[in-house]
Amino acid sequence: MRNTRKRGQADRSALTRGVSAPGVAADNTDGGYNAGIAVFSYIVGGIIVWSLIGWGLDYLWGTRWIVLAGALLGAVGGFYLSHMHGLTSSRKNADERHAPSAPSQDGKDSAK
Protein backbone atom coordinates (compact mmCIF):
# COMPACT_ATOMS: atom_id res chain seq x y z
CA MET A 1 0.00 0.00 0.00
CA ARG A 2 1.11 3.52 -0.68
CA ASN A 3 1.31 6.16 1.97
CA THR A 4 -1.37 8.75 1.22
CA ARG A 5 0.33 11.54 3.15
CA LYS A 6 2.30 14.02 1.15
CA ARG A 7 6.03 14.22 1.69
CA GLY A 8 5.88 17.86 2.86
CA GLN A 9 3.35 17.04 5.57
CA ALA A 10 5.52 14.24 6.92
CA ASP A 11 8.57 16.52 7.02
CA ARG A 12 6.67 19.25 8.89
CA SER A 13 5.29 16.82 11.45
CA ALA A 14 8.79 15.53 12.14
CA LEU A 15 9.99 19.09 12.72
CA THR A 16 7.13 20.00 15.04
CA ARG A 17 7.68 16.92 17.18
CA GLY A 18 11.25 17.98 17.87
CA VAL A 19 14.10 15.79 18.92
CA SER A 20 14.81 15.53 22.62
CA ALA A 21 16.83 13.45 25.01
CA PRO A 22 15.61 9.99 26.01
CA GLY A 23 12.94 10.26 28.67
CA VAL A 24 12.09 13.89 27.92
CA ALA A 25 8.98 14.83 26.00
CA ALA A 26 9.18 17.09 22.95
CA ASP A 27 7.72 20.01 24.92
CA ASN A 28 10.67 19.78 27.38
CA THR A 29 8.62 18.49 30.29
CA ASP A 30 10.06 15.70 32.35
CA GLY A 31 9.08 12.22 31.33
CA GLY A 32 8.58 10.91 34.86
CA TYR A 33 9.07 7.17 34.71
CA ASN A 34 10.83 7.30 31.33
CA ALA A 35 13.32 9.88 32.56
CA GLY A 36 14.07 7.70 35.59
CA ILE A 37 14.66 4.67 33.42
CA ALA A 38 16.93 6.71 31.14
CA VAL A 39 19.02 7.94 34.09
CA PHE A 40 19.20 4.41 35.50
CA SER A 41 20.31 2.98 32.17
CA TYR A 42 22.99 5.65 31.69
CA ILE A 43 24.45 4.97 35.13
CA VAL A 44 24.22 1.18 35.07
CA GLY A 45 25.37 1.01 31.46
CA GLY A 46 28.35 3.22 32.24
CA ILE A 47 29.31 1.10 35.24
CA ILE A 48 29.08 -2.14 33.24
CA VAL A 49 30.98 -0.88 30.19
CA TRP A 50 33.79 0.84 32.09
CA SER A 51 34.10 -2.05 34.57
CA LEU A 52 34.59 -4.44 31.67
CA ILE A 53 37.21 -2.15 30.18
CA GLY A 54 38.92 -1.97 33.57
CA TRP A 55 38.72 -5.73 33.97
CA GLY A 56 40.37 -6.20 30.57
CA LEU A 57 43.15 -3.78 31.46
CA ASP A 58 43.62 -5.51 34.83
CA TYR A 59 43.94 -8.83 33.04
CA LEU A 60 46.50 -7.45 30.58
CA TRP A 61 48.59 -5.56 33.09
CA GLY A 62 48.22 -7.92 36.08
CA THR A 63 46.68 -5.30 38.40
CA ARG A 64 43.55 -5.38 40.54
CA TRP A 65 42.44 -1.77 40.97
CA ILE A 66 41.60 -0.58 37.47
CA VAL A 67 38.24 -2.38 37.46
CA LEU A 68 37.17 -0.30 40.49
CA ALA A 69 38.39 2.90 38.85
CA GLY A 70 36.44 1.92 35.74
CA ALA A 71 33.25 1.38 37.74
CA LEU A 72 33.64 4.77 39.41
CA LEU A 73 34.36 6.42 36.07
CA GLY A 74 31.26 4.75 34.57
CA ALA A 75 29.01 5.97 37.40
CA VAL A 76 30.33 9.53 37.13
CA GLY A 77 29.98 9.42 33.35
CA GLY A 78 26.38 8.19 33.64
CA PHE A 79 25.48 11.02 36.00
CA TYR A 80 27.19 13.48 33.67
CA LEU A 81 25.32 12.22 30.60
CA SER A 82 21.96 12.28 32.37
CA HIS A 83 22.64 15.82 33.59
CA MET A 84 23.71 17.03 30.15
CA HIS A 85 20.56 15.57 28.59
CA GLY A 86 18.46 17.49 31.11
CA LEU A 87 17.13 14.42 32.90
CA THR A 88 18.30 15.46 36.38
CA SER A 89 17.23 19.11 36.29
CA SER A 90 14.88 20.51 38.90
CA ARG A 91 11.14 20.40 38.33
CA LYS A 92 9.41 23.38 36.77
CA ASN A 93 5.88 24.69 37.02
CA ALA A 94 3.67 24.91 33.96
CA ASP A 95 4.71 28.53 33.40
CA GLU A 96 8.42 27.50 33.20
CA ARG A 97 9.46 28.96 36.57
CA HIS A 98 11.20 26.88 39.18
CA ALA A 99 8.96 25.57 41.90
CA PRO A 100 9.45 27.42 45.21
CA SER A 101 11.75 25.58 47.58
CA ALA A 102 11.66 28.03 50.50
CA PRO A 103 9.18 30.33 52.22
CA SER A 104 8.49 33.64 50.54
CA GLN A 105 10.23 36.82 51.65
CA ASP A 106 7.20 38.09 53.61
CA GLY A 107 7.08 34.87 55.67
CA LYS A 108 3.74 33.70 54.34
CA ASP A 109 3.32 30.25 52.88
CA SER A 110 2.81 30.33 49.10
CA ALA A 111 0.96 27.00 49.00
CA LYS A 112 -2.62 27.08 47.76
Rank of each mutant, 00 (worst) to 15 (best):
Y42N: 09
W65I: 08
G8A: 15
S110Y: 03
I43E: 05
I66R: 03
N34I: 00
I48K: 05
D106A: 00
A94T: 13
R7N: 15
R12W: 10
I66T: 01
H83Q: 11
K6P: 05
Q105W: 05
L72F: 06
N93F: 08
A71F: 00
I48R: 04
N28L: 14
G45P: 05
A99M: 11
T4P: 12
L57A: 07
V19F: 11
G70F: 02
L73C: 06
S90M: 10
I66A: 03
N28R: 15
I37A: 08
R12F: 10
D11G: 09
V39K: 05
G23F: 04
P22K: 03
H98V: 13
A10C: 08
K6I: 06
A69Q: 07
A21F: 03
S90L: 15
Y42W: 11
L57I: 08
G36K: 02
G54N: 07
A10F: 01
Y59V: 12
A21P: 04
G70W: 07
V49L: 13
A102P: 03
R5F: 12
A25V: 12
R17G: 13
H83L: 15
F40A: 09
S82T: 01
L68E: 10
P100F: 07
R97V: 13
H83G: 15
G46F: 06
G74I: 03
I37F: 08
V67M: 13
D30Y: 05
G70A: 03
P100D: 01
L15P: 02
D30M: 03
S110C: 10
Y80A: 10
A21E: 05
A75E: 06
G23W: 05
R7I: 13
T63W: 08
G54C: 03
K6D: 11
G107C: 05
I66Q: 04
D11Y: 10
R5G: 08
E96H: 14
H98E: 15
A111H: 09
S41I: 08
G46A: 06
R97F: 12
V76L: 10
D106G: 04
A69I: 06
L60V: 11
L87G: 04
R64M: 12
P100A: 06
I47H: 01
Y59H: 12
A26K: 13
V39Y: 01
A94N: 14
G107P: 05
P22E: 03
S51R: 01
A75M: 07
N34E: 14
G8I: 11
Q9T: 14
D95Q: 06
I37L: 13
R64P: 08
L52G: 13
K112I: 09
L87Y: 06
I53C: 00
T63M: 10
P100R: 02
S90R: 11
G54W: 02
A102Y: 09
A10H: 02
A102M: 12
L60C: 07
A102T: 14
V24E: 02
A71I: 02
A25H: 11
A35W: 00
